[in-house]
């Protein structure tokens, strides 16, 4: 099972930007304890949602040949809370891309209004570069690839 915190990609431009949507629902068990009397979406999970959106953007830019891992959250500012029934979008814009790493600037919107900015850096790992005994392609299993495939059909990739 993958811990996926985006529902769907809405827009995708190779090596430029990705836009994902997340509908926040009280069916999500994480909200039952955060908090029972006043459920709000944890900011850490919105950061994860942005990491997944940006991770797909970067992973596709690497032709999914590297495992893209979150290396640093440079900035994460939020100005509002998010409650069940809200719709979140995560817009990830590629800022830097080199062989070993990349960075994105991210905008979080709630029901269309900007409520957060997140900047993060990804490392591009594989068994040769990391020196670690990583499992084969442990990031881009089917779930993430299937999200982006509709945007790549007919494109150069």
């Amino acid at each position: 099972m993958r811990w996926i915190w985006i529902d769907r990609l809405l827009e995708f431009e190779t090596r430029k930007r990705a836009l994902a949507v997340k509908n926040v629902s009280l069916a999500g068990e994480h909200l039952h304890d955060h908090w029972e009397a006043y459920p709000i979406m944890p900011t850490s999970l919105m950061i994860e949602g942005m990491a997944q959106t940006g991770g797909i953007l970067v992973g596709q830019a690497c032709n999914f040949e590297h495992d893209v891992v979150l290396a640093k959250i440079t900035k994460a500012d939020f100005t509002d809370i998010v409650i069940p029934g809200d719709q979140l979008t995560y817009e990830a814009i590629l800022e830097n891309f080199v062989d070993e790493a990349s960075s994105i600037k991210g905008i979080v919107r709630k029901n269309g209004e900007q409520i957060g900015t997140i900047s993060m850096i990804f490392g591009h790992a594989n068994n040769n570069s990391s020196g670690l005994d990583l499992p084969e392609n442990f990031v881009f299993t089917g779930s993430f690839q299937r999200m982006v495939e509709p945007f790549l059909e007919g494109a150069d990739g």
Binding site: A71, K72, T74, E95, N96, V98, D99, E100, A101, S103, I121, G123
Partner: peptide
């Protein structure tokens, strides 16, 4: 270590330069 990459990215942008690895 990852901060050096971050610094490199920021310097490239701030000064409009390229910093080869």
């Amino acid at each position: 270590s990852i901060d050096y990459l971050d610094i490199t990215f920021r310097l490239e942008k701030a000064f409009d330069i390229k910093i080869p690895r």
